[in-house]
Nucleic acid binder design. Structure first.
Lengths: 349, 349
DNA sequence: CTGTTAGCGCATTCAC
DNA sequence: GTGAATGCGCTAACAG
């Protein structure tokens, strides 16, 4: 029952014209008679012809496959799922299809899927590199002239465009927001100073305080595990200070949730009695504490930007040789409106 | 800088052999001398040759593109994200790549992406149909001999394999679980009797009761909106009965969460004072109430099964003409261990 | 074991 | 406007 694919020749014969005429019709060329065009399109529909992009692409000898690759390290994380949706949106409307693969943080798997994608002739690649990705992993790809953009994490030494969140700017925005609300004793809670992300966020916090003319107090910087439990721990310690803070910027959302837990344990209502802002790294589901202000990067927006950047490079023909960093700005988002996010998710029926 | 792709001829010349020899090497044919093989592979690596699957596939004229398509209606829903991961796993290890597209419940978009995938010569398709998908949408695809398997929802009238959750069996399992725990006044809360899903689950509930020799009481069937608020409403009404239930099977997880809310409002601890089981449709995030028993289908497992089913059909060459229903069994999962699911999700650093 | 020949389905010159 | 050739990168038959 495995029917062979209908080809141009067959529809040419059926329509009583030549193959090239059919080809012209397929490309909407104006050099073809209206009558013949109608005839041809009719036959095409009738015989159920489908365009063979592979063959077409082969003939044009330039890699114009109209397919882009997207490789993420953890699709299970809703951040990346949304990123993929964003990419898919712009990619789809540009007439491309997307290869999507999941590496599960394995550089080996990543190498495999990337070569596989190359064999299929992708015209561009968006990658959220697995931990431990080396520049050499992307080297042959970019050497062959295929545009690559890295998201979320960048690859040291690789000459690719990178799209990352502006942690520094986001932290500054958060602090400025709190200052505008009248706070001047603002703690920085959670995380350990051993990651680049921590440094960026902490530096933004420090810079914003300085700009606001507030002196930074070491006592208000309280490190902890970047988890919910860590957050509880951090706020507990903060509230034992003689001169308590009135607000806190948390290293990430898990910490922020923990901080809220800790506050409630002390009969304080987060948002009312004590302001808390967390970076939204999508570690914790939002629905549990809807009344939390977060600093976040919109994953779909990031995906769209990445795709646009990639398409621009594809169309330019000349991928950027230099690594450019186009950062997605984090924004302070007041989410106290208790968005009923859960309501719109369902799979049944 | 857009380097042309290296071809077999070039590496043939460089290695001082003919193209077919190279071809044989590429296919790991045993008909080639060890020495020449070594020479050829060396040159291949040196020149950075990449296999052109498009051309190969063209020559073999049979659709053996080694790519499968996956179209989901809402990748934003973690259920589908996990499904995609499951599909990707088996597809990857079978040497395939996956086209992934997102329809956002739009049948039009779905038609577009499917044709696009067809043009690229997919050798199989897994689809979670958008609401409103007609059999005619899949007709041309299956007519061309490309295996299709539908997941989660099936398409009425389309002769495709479908993979759906066993709502009936899941409900029975849940009730049996409760009966084993000693309950005999078990309510069925939430949902409206206007969907197929409701009917299936309700029927499973009824059948299990009968099997356990418990007479079904109309009063214990309390419909409501399939939402958290609906759950609160339902349990409130249930607890006003003269003869109160001691356990409840909820139409979905949102309802279950609402039921828990309602119980707490009455100073009852879910799981301890009153047993509640919910179908896990991933409507509500789990982290909020970790101590809830759910009946759920593992999305990754479902994805894997779908992919396996598809690959089997692809390899058989003869896609099933008849629609077969291979159901994924829902299982009762005791999650009172307070799984710290949030901890393992992070994107930073 | 290795080289030669002939297409796969399509788009692109060129003639007509 | 339309038809006849040619080649994209590769594999499948055969010949050597």
């Amino acid at each position: 029952m495995n029917k062979k694919r209908v080809t141009v020749v067959e529809i040419a014969q059926a329509a009583g014209v030549s193959k090239s005429t059919v080809s012209l019709v397929l490309q909407n060329s104006p050099l073809v008679n209206e009558a013949t065009r109608a005839k041809v399109t009719a036959v095409i529909r009738e015989l159920g012809y489908v365009y063979n992009r592979g063959a077409a692409n082969l003939r044009q000898s330039g890699s114009n496959s109209k397919i882009i690759g997207l490789v993420v390290n953890d699709l299970t994380n809703s951040f990346f799922a949304e990123l993929a949706v964003g990419v898919d949106m712009v990619v789809q409307s540009a007439g491309y299809v997307q290869f999507l693969s999941h590496t599960g943080e394995s550089p080996d798997r990543q190498r495999e899927v990337i070569t596989s994608m190359r064999e299929h002739g992708i015209s561009g690649l968006i990658v959220s590199p697995a931990r431990g990705t080396q520049a050499i992993d992307l080297k042959p790809l970019i050497a062959s002239g295929i545009p690559v953009v890295a998201t979320v994490r960048n690859v040291a030494g690789a000459k690719v465009s990178s799209l990352m969140s502006d942690n520094h700017g986001g932290a500054m925005a958060a602090v400025e927001h709190l200052v505008a609300l009248g706070h001047h004793r603002i703690a920085f809670l959670g995380g350990f100073a051993d990651t680049g992300v921590f440094t960026e966020r902490y530096q933004g916090y420090a810079d914003a305080l300085q700009r606001a003319g507030i002196v930074l107090e070491e006592a208000l910087i309280i490190g902890s595990a970047p988890s919910r439990a860590g957050g509880v721990d951090a706020i507990m310690r903060a509230m034992q200070l003689a001169d308590k803070p009135t607000a806190a910027l948390c290293f990430n959302d898990a910490v922020a949730f923990g901080v809220c837990d800790g506050l409630r344990a002390q009969r304080l209502e987060p948002g009312a009695d004590f302001a808390v802002i967390g970076f939204d790294d999508v570690i914790e589901a939002k629905s549990a504490v809807p009344a939390l202000t977060t600093v976040s990067v919109d994953p779909q927006g990031m995906g769209q930007k990445a795709a646009q950047l990639l398409l621009k490079q594809i169309n330019a023909g000349q991928p950027e040789a230099e690594a450019i960093v186009s950062s997605v700005r984090l924004v302070v988002r007041e989410s106290c409106g208790a968005t009923k996010q859960g309501e719109q998710r369902r799979i049944t029926g």
